[in-house]
Computed example of a mutant assay.
Amino acid sequence: MFALSAAAVVPFTETPLPASAASAATPATTSAAGAVRLLSPPPPAESTTTEEEAESKPVLLRPGDKGAAVRTLQRKLHRGRYYFGPINGKYDEQTKFAVWAFQKHKRMMLSNQVGPKMLSALDKPVRHKVLVPQGAANRVEINLTKQLLVVYRSRRPVLISHISTGAEVRYCENGRCGNAITPVGDFRVLRRAPGWTTGPLGSMYNSLYFTGAIAMHGSTKVPLRPASHGCVRLPLETSKRLYQMVKIGEPVHVRGKFSVRAFR
């Protein structure tokens, strides 16, 4: 498992003017006796900041935040094909998963927090690296190294998702033992199972099986590490869109090997 970076917030402290400067900057009047009396500065003008100006100011968004800035983030993530949930202005778990997907795709430091640098990067094209250059125009690529899934249509990426694949450990659960490995290779979708299904190893949502009992499916647990028994876990909202797009017979290519160092 790897740690999330913490954004540093440096408080801004205004430096008080020296006495001489304060005297020069403050209006004054002279009495008949020659004494100098400082006048009170005028009250500050009422703010006239427009909504557009407010949105352009630097922001730092965190999970749990709500409002217009979060809606802007969600729209940008949706436009980039990272987010498929509602544009509701709530920085919830599905939004967090989309933030991770973009950061992985852009090779940025992984963090729950979103600052001006990421918001700016979302407006710029991302150089995309294809895993299978000679693959079919419509296909799914699963990158175990980046823990990233990409769906192509007409050779263009149209869905990019954070995933959690096989934990690569030996397991024994409910009388069933095996190796938690997501196999590398070239496959095709063999079977589809809509909605929630529950087996001896847990529950799966909108499952797309591509070899044996291994499937791409939605899950309520998609951590920043390989954690499955071999399946490819996706965020729930993204799995809904994936299930709409991918049909039986579609090519699925799995490449790479997970390494924590890849995210440092």
Results as ranks from 00 to 15, higher is better:
155 R>S: 15
148 L>F: 09
83 Y>N: 02
16 P>Q: 07
200 P>D: 13
15 T>Q: 13
176 R>I: 15
221 K>D: 15
142 I>W: 00
147 Q>E: 13
191 R>D: 09
194 P>S: 14
184 V>Y: 04
84 F>W: 06
113 Q>R: 11
56 S>V: 03
126 V>C: 06
42 P>T: 11
117 K>S: 14
191 R>Q: 15
39 L>N: 08
20 S>K: 12
68 A>L: 03
176 R>D: 08
17 L>K: 11
249 G>L: 01
192 R>H: 06
35 A>L: 13
71 R>A: 01
65 D>G: 01
63 P>Q: 09
200 P>Y: 13
178 G>D: 12
131 L>T: 02
254 V>C: 11
101 A>L: 02
166 G>L: 07
99 V>A: 09
34 G>T: 04
132 V>T: 13
101 A>W: 00
234 L>D: 01
93 E>Q: 15
203 S>D: 09
32 A>S: 14
98 A>V: 10
73 L>N: 00
14 E>P: 07
31 S>W: 10
19 A>P: 08
217 H>D: 08
81 R>N: 12
20 S>V: 11
203 S>L: 07
239 S>V: 03
36 V>D: 04
42 P>E: 14
133 P>W: 01
104 K>S: 08
156 R>K: 14
236 L>G: 03
234 L>V: 08
239 S>M: 03
228 S>N: 05
78 H>S: 15
244 Q>N: 11
218 G>T: 06
126 V>N: 04
167 A>S: 15
4 L>T: 09
46 E>M: 10
216 M>G: 02
243 Y>F: 15
227 A>F: 06
212 G>P: 08
123 D>Y: 05
251 P>H: 04
57 K>V: 11
263 F>Q: 03
229 H>L: 08
230 G>Y: 01
13 T>G: 09
56 S>I: 02
27 P>F: 07
84 F>Q: 00
157 P>T: 02
193 A>I: 14
88 N>R: 00
177 C>N: 07
183 P>A: 05
258 F>N: 02
43 P>R: 10
261 R>P: 02
48 T>V: 13
242 L>G: 01
70 V>N: 00
169 V>L: 08
44 P>V: 13
109 M>L: 11
219 S>H: 05
23 S>Y: 12
207 S>F: 06
198 T>G: 09
140 V>F: 03
68 A>V: 01
182 T>Y: 08
208 L>E: 05
61 L>F: 05
260 V>L: 12
92 D>E: 13
208 L>S: 06
189 V>M: 03
93 E>G: 09
244 Q>F: 01
103 Q>W: 02
178 G>T: 10
140 V>N: 01
23 S>G: 15
226 P>R: 05
142 I>T: 01
172 C>R: 09
68 A>P: 01
83 Y>F: 15
116 P>T: 05
3 A>S: 14
222 V>F: 02
228 S>Q: 04
189 V>N: 02
19 A>T: 12
252 V>A: 08
169 V>T: 14
203 S>C: 08
149 L>D: 00
174 N>L: 04
246 V>F: 03
147 Q>P: 04
149 L>C: 05
186 D>E: 15
